[in-house]
């Protein structure tokens, strides 16, 4: 049997500023994941980093340990690989004062 695979757009054309997080994504069936963040426009200021978070219940979140840069220029893409994440995944970020980014975030799952 072929493994399952899904590409999910989890944030589309969202303007991120301050503290933000994607919606809880349940993916206990998957063994591995990649988050891609694409900037739809040039960021205002320096948007900083995003971090991967795990959860025991989809409501309470803890850092997974993976941190990566948010893209700064239109159509720039950054990403992070994750594995062994349990049931829930999300991406969160705290952008510095004055910074904002319009993003398309995709989650690619396989298992």
């Amino acid at each position: 049997m072929l493994v399952q695979s899904q590409a999910a757009v989890i944030a589309r054309n969202e303007t991120w500023s301050g503290t933000v997080a994607t919606e809880p994504h349940e993916a206990g069936w998957a063994r591995e994941a990649i988050f891609f963040v694409r900037a739809l426009h040039d960021a205002a200021g320096a948007p900083g980093t995003a971090q991967v978070e795990l959860s025991p219940d989809g409501m309470r979140w803890v850092p997974e340990g993976t941190v990566f840069d948010l893209p700064r220029r239109a159509d720039e893409v950054t990403f992070a690989r994750v594995a062994h994440f349990g049931t829930w995944l999300r991406l969160s970020a705290t952008l510095p004062d004055g910074a904002s980014a319009v993003v398309l975030v995709t989650l690619h799952l396989k298992g």
Partner: peptide, 27 residues
């Protein structure tokens, strides 16, 4: 541009495969 999408649709997100996990007893 994605900006032309009606707001009712812009809020939509992907369905998931779920074990219906619950905080108090599990899947």
């Amino acid at each position: 541009s994605l900006d032309s999408m009606l707001p009712g649709y812009a809020q939509h997100s992907m369905a998931m495969l779920s074990t219906l996990p619950q905080w108090d007893f599990g899947s």
